[in-house]
Simulated scan of single mutants.
Amino acid sequence: MARPVIGIIGNHHLIGNDYRTQAAGEMNIAAVADVCDALPLVVPSMPEAVAVADLVEVCAGFIFTGGRPNVHPSLYGHEETPGHGPFDPRRDSLTLPLIRSCVERGIPILGLCRGFQEFGVAYGSTLHPEIRDLPGRMNHRMPPDGTLEEKFALRHPVNLTPGGKFAKLFGSDVIQVNSLHGQGVIDAGSRVVIEGYAPDGTAEALHIAGACNFAMAVQWHAEWRAGEDPVSRALFSSFAQAVHAKRSCAAA
């Protein structure tokens, strides 16, 4: 039997300052292939080339990946500032309606880092362009120096809502995560349920209320060594179970 297809949202990159590409990190691809036992399909962030209606027919689930460009502030009612950038409006135009369509149809979705912020904005949340500038907040950005292992190392705990979806998934109310982001959710939308916070109050884990299937997102990069880290493996395994179950809202 063929493995289910999981779409991995790609990001725009320039090679040599003029050659435009769409790509996804091998960490995401490996997590889908190895932990989810699914066929990874890189989805270009090009709404002029791929339509939401087509994607939801092809893919059994989606991973909304991290990426350097941020969600454009006009999409959550804020003015653009240099601190908000850079942007990728084509990705915004694809991912936000895709998230809402998947929730409506019961297609499992998992958000990581930028994907966490996309989940929030898709359902009315606002973002702050630079979390570390807020009083009492830590620097959540990627360390500028060191090896890849050092940059993706566990950096702080996340306190989870006791008895919530994430605490049940991980079997603990406190977990350790990496931290490689600048922006963060400030005001959660009406359907955005925050269930995890860093010690400084930064939102780290959310799910979409009323979703009939897996619709969860985390601010950290859970794709890093997803098969080895117990927290990451639990998250991807739970997402994979939903994908393999092939449950829809109509069948729920």
Rank of each mutant, 00 (worst) to 15 (best):
residue 17 N to I: 01
residue 53 A to C: 03
residue 77 G to P: 11
residue 109 I to P: 13
residue 79 E to W: 02
residue 8 I to N: 11
residue 32 V to F: 13
residue 182 G to M: 08
residue 58 V to S: 01
residue 107 I to L: 12
residue 109 I to S: 15
residue 207 H to R: 14
residue 145 D to S: 15
residue 236 F to T: 02
residue 59 C to I: 06
residue 174 V to Q: 14
residue 66 G to V: 04
residue 45 S to R: 06
residue 123 Y to I: 05
residue 3 R to E: 14
residue 215 A to K: 03
residue 98 L to A: 06
residue 5 V to G: 06
residue 106 G to I: 05
residue 96 L to N: 09
residue 131 I to E: 08
residue 153 A to G: 05
residue 54 D to T: 14
residue 32 V to M: 00
residue 188 A to Y: 13
residue 240 A to V: 04
residue 234 A to K: 15
residue 17 N to G: 13
residue 175 I to P: 10
residue 240 A to F: 09
residue 85 G to F: 00
residue 224 W to C: 01
residue 121 V to P: 11
residue 217 A to S: 15
residue 228 E to H: 13
residue 224 W to H: 14
residue 186 I to G: 03
residue 219 Q to G: 04
residue 245 A to S: 15
residue 90 R to E: 08
residue 113 C to I: 01
residue 2 A to T: 13
residue 146 G to T: 05
residue 23 A to Q: 12
residue 208 I to F: 12
residue 90 R to Y: 08
residue 89 P to G: 03
residue 189 G to D: 05
residue 104 E to R: 07
residue 187 D to R: 05
residue 231 V to P: 02
residue 149 E to P: 03
residue 22 Q to C: 10
residue 220 W to P: 13
residue 88 D to N: 15
residue 252 A to E: 12
residue 163 G to P: 08
residue 65 T to H: 10
residue 55 L to C: 10
residue 143 P to T: 06
residue 158 V to Y: 05
residue 217 A to Y: 12
residue 42 V to R: 11
residue 200 D to P: 06
residue 182 G to I: 02
residue 170 F to W: 02
residue 163 G to H: 06
residue 76 Y to E: 06
residue 44 P to S: 02
residue 250 A to F: 06
residue 27 M to F: 15
residue 87 F to Y: 13
residue 77 G to T: 03
residue 99 I to K: 08
residue 249 C to H: 07
residue 8 I to C: 10
residue 242 A to R: 03
residue 144 P to Q: 01
residue 201 G to A: 03
residue 72 H to K: 04
residue 239 F to N: 12
residue 205 A to E: 11
residue 69 P to N: 04
residue 125 S to K: 09
residue 243 V to Q: 05
residue 132 R to T: 13
residue 102 C to W: 03
residue 109 I to E: 09
residue 235 L to I: 13
residue 207 H to L: 10
residue 63 I to N: 07
residue 139 N to P: 01
residue 17 N to T: 14
residue 62 F to T: 05
residue 47 P to A: 08
residue 81 T to W: 00
residue 28 N to C: 11
residue 117 Q to F: 00
residue 25 G to S: 15
residue 165 K to G: 15
residue 209 A to N: 12
residue 50 V to D: 13
residue 209 A to L: 14
residue 13 H to P: 01
residue 210 G to Y: 07
residue 121 V to E: 08
residue 127 L to K: 00
residue 44 P to C: 00
